[in-house]
Every structure is written in structure tokens, then in C-alpha cells.
Amino acid sequence: MRTTIKGLLAAVVISATTLGVARAEFPERTVELVHPWGPGNAMSVSQIIAKAMGEELGENMPVISVPGAAGTKGQIMAMERPADGYTVFDGYVAPLLLQPILGNADWDFRDFKPLHAAVSNAFAIGGRADETRWSSFEGMMEYGKENPGALRYSSGTRNNLPHMVIAKVLQSYGVVAQNVPYTQDGNAVKDLKSGILDFSFVNVGDYKADPAAFEILLVMSELPGAKASYDDAPAITDLELDLNLSGLGPMGWTWWIVHPDTPEDVTATLRDAMETAMKRPDVQEAIERVGFVPLEWDHTQYEEILSSVQSQLEAMGNALIWEEEQLHSLDR
């Protein structure tokens, strides 16, 4: 009897120590990725990367969707979790950079530890293929100038990145148009097609689903790859006007981050896993099929690249204020 108890005790001690050893080896359980948007293309792309990164880590990596407040709800929630590396945040430009600039969040992107750049997705300003009032972006701007406040457009949700970029463009041309918010991007595109909206932001996925329905007026990126995914439609570099937008500035993108207090070795493990995952050809192909572009920057380039985007966005912030003031003065 005694030997059994002794044996049992020994077994417990041994299993406890092995457990202790196992603890040192990160990760020993599921690592979660907090994604700041609802289900859709962006979440699917994050799932592709998370799945591959999970395979590199040897653990599952589920994606948890926590939408709300332009993405800040997800970021707040992720950063309130313990800084143990078991929570990674899908750092989209809106919560990470844009909302602090608009005064809706109190952090700076330098507060967080970057893992690796994930993806970018360019968008375009699109109209209907059967439009008769104009035939080019500049033509539409002329129409808009002659008829202040007459144009109706959508950027998806209000004060998001496409809204900021479109407002900046409209401001540059002195055109006042009414933005109509939509929670589901697909519905804005649908209302564009059926003639309710005059123009709208169109992402690659929407365009590829039905290219014949759109007249892509302006691709909001200087990258040749983005222009190519809209079948060589005019891009911002083709305009006579210089909009001062470059690099990731006018685009949506995400850079995965963790809590600043995450231990160095844990962060290093996560960085390695993500970098390996991002380099895998199957991952890159899967991302490109959804119309997103995989990014190759690692954590050392985080500060440099995001600083440039930040200064561009700050300049664009004024455009939103300008648009609001113009719409108010039209109401009167």
C-alpha cells in the first residue's frame, strides 16, 4: 500500500516537473489572434496567415473577431490581456494609427511590439460602367464642382481610411460631396451598381467579382501591383495634381503586434513563426487570390514605415474636417 502511495507521489512529482519544463517552452497552448473587424475578406486573409503561423508554432492559432468603434475595441481588448504572447493583435491601420490621429484613441503605434507586416489592400474610386455624365475621374470632379453637394458616395464606414483619402482627393479638387455610411461594404457597391450612389470605394474583391459593372476611375495607390489588379485603370500617379500620397499612405494594411511587456524570447518566437509563415509560397498565393498583397517587412522596419504613414494621415485628417464644414455650410 505504502509503495503504491509512494509510487503515486513520485508520478505526481515527475509529471509536475515535466509540466514545469514544458512551461518554459513557448507556446504550450492555443495562441489567439484578435481581429478588429467582422467576418469577411479581411478576416479570411488573417485566418490564412494565422493558420500558417500556427503550423510554424506547433499550436492552433484561432482568429477572434472583435469588431467595434473603428477597430479600437479589439485593440483595447487585446492589450488588456496578459502580456504573455498568447494574444496577438491584427494591427490594422484604422485602430493602430488612424483613430489616435482623430483623437478617438490614446496610444501611439510605437507603444507596441511589432511582429511582422502582414498584408495591404489597395482600393479604388469606382463608378458605373454605363455612366453618361462623365467619362473620367477628372470629368466627375468637374461635374462635382459645378453641382456642389449633389454627388453621393460611400467609403464604407464614416471616418475610415478610404473616407480620409477620398476626402483629401475631393478637397484637392474643391468638390463637396455627401458621404453615405454603410456597415457592409457589399451593400455600398450594390447601391452603386443600381444607381443610388454616384461613386464609391471599390476594393479588389468587389471589382474582381464583376469587373464589367464598374468604371474604375482612380486606383488609390502608386504601386504598380495595385494598378494591375484593377486591369490598369488610371491611378493617382496618372493625375496632373500631386496628392502627396505615397507608400502605404493611401492603402489599408495590417501589421501584427503584441503587448509591449511581452517577454523578449516569446516575442522572438512569434516573430520567427510569422516571418516563416509570410515567406511560404502557399500562404502568399492564398492571400493574393483574395486580392490582398502580402508584405515582406519585418519588425525592424516597423517604425520607419509607420512614421511616414502617420505624417501622411495627419495631413489627411484636415480633409475630413474640411468636408464636414463644407456640408454644414451647404445645409444652411
Binding site: 479570411s44 451593400n187 474583391g205 486580392g291
Partner: peptide, 17 residues
């Protein structure tokens, strides 16, 4: 290519992948 609700939105995302 327009999902009717959140569940079909996920199905659409899966098809794209």
C-alpha cells in the same frame, strides 16, 4: 458576390481563399 448575412459572408471568404 454579395453575402446575405454573416454566415454567408464567411462562406464567401472561404470561396475566395
Amino acid at each position: 458576390g454579395i453575402p446575405g448575412d454573416a454566415s454567408s459572408a464567411m462562406l464567401l471568404g472561404a470561396m475566395l481563399i
